[in-house]
Design a protein around this nucleic acid. Sequence first.
RNA 1: GCAUAGGACGCCCG
Length: 322
Amino acid sequence: LISWTSLIAVLAQNGHLDQAKQFMEKMPQPNLVSCNTLLAAFSSSGRVTEAKEGFNSVPERDMASWSSMLTAYTHNGRLEEAKGLFDEMPSRSLVSWTSMMLVYGQNGHLDYAKSVFDSMPERDLVAWTSMLAALVHNSRFDDARLLFDSMPQKDLIAWTTMLLGYIQGGLIFEGKALFDSMPERNATAWNCMLGVYAQKGHLANATKIFQGIPAQDQGLISWSAMLAAYCHHGHFEQGFEAFQAMKMVVESPDEVCFTLLLVACSSQGEVYTGRCVFTSMSVDYGVVAGKQHYACMVDLLGRSGHLRSARELIGSMPFVED
RNA sequence: GCAUAGGACGCCCG
C-alpha cells in the first residue's frame, strides 16, 4: 500500500499527473495520503476543477486535504471560493490562516491581510514572511522594512522577500546593501539582484552579478535575466551570444528565452533571424509557439513591410485573433 | 520508520 502511495507521489511530483490519476483509480484501497498527494499536485499545477473533484472524493478529510484545496483557490486568484472554503473548514491551522492572509494581500486587500495576521492564534516564520510579502506586493515598502526588522527570526526567504521589496520600490542601493549583508544567498536571491540591473539596462552591474553567481545557482532564470538585459536594450548580438553560451550549460531554453530573442529581432528589424528563431524554437527545442511568439513575429513582419507573410502567419495561428 | 498541505526570483499580455 505504501508503495502505491509512493508511486503516486513520485508521478505527481514530476508532472505526470494523468498517470498518477490512473494509478489512483487502479489502487486497491485509496488512502488519505494518496488522495491528498494527488489533490496537492492538481492544486499546484493550476488544475482547480480536478482538485475540487479530488477534494470531494476524499473520504475523511484532514488538515492537509483542506489546506491543499485552499491553496488551489488561493494560487489561482479565486478569492471568493477561498473565503468560502476557509469558512467551511471544520478547524483551521497555521497553514490555512497563512494562505488566507496571502490571498487577501495578493488581491489588494492589505487591510484584511493585516487583520488576519493580527488575529492569528500563533505566527511562525512562514506567517511573518507572508505578511512581509503582502506588504511588498502592495508597495508598502517602509512598512515592510519595519516588519522585517521586527521579525523574531529570519531565513533566506525572508531576506529575499525584503530584497524584492527594495527592488520593487526602486531602492536599488538599499537593495544592494541588503544583498551584500545577507547571511547566505541562493539562486533566487542572486536572480532578484541580477534582475533589477538587467531590467534597468545596467549591463555592467548585471554582468558582474551574473559572474558572481555560483555555478549551481546559475539556472535558466539567471540566463533569461541576462538575455533580457541584452534583448531589451538593443544589444542584439550580445543577446544571441548569451543564448549560445546558455545552451552549453543550462538544461534547455524555454518559451521565455525565445520571446526575448524574438523581441530583439523585432526591435532590430531582423526578419531573417527572427524567422529562423521562430522555426528553430519548435523544431529544435520542442517549444510550442505561444501568443507572445506570434505577436513578436507579426510585429516584426508587419513593421518590415512583409504584410503578406504577417497575414499568413496570423491565419495559421492556433489561437483566436485578438 | 516512510509518503501528502502555507512564504521569495526571469519575457510578453492582462
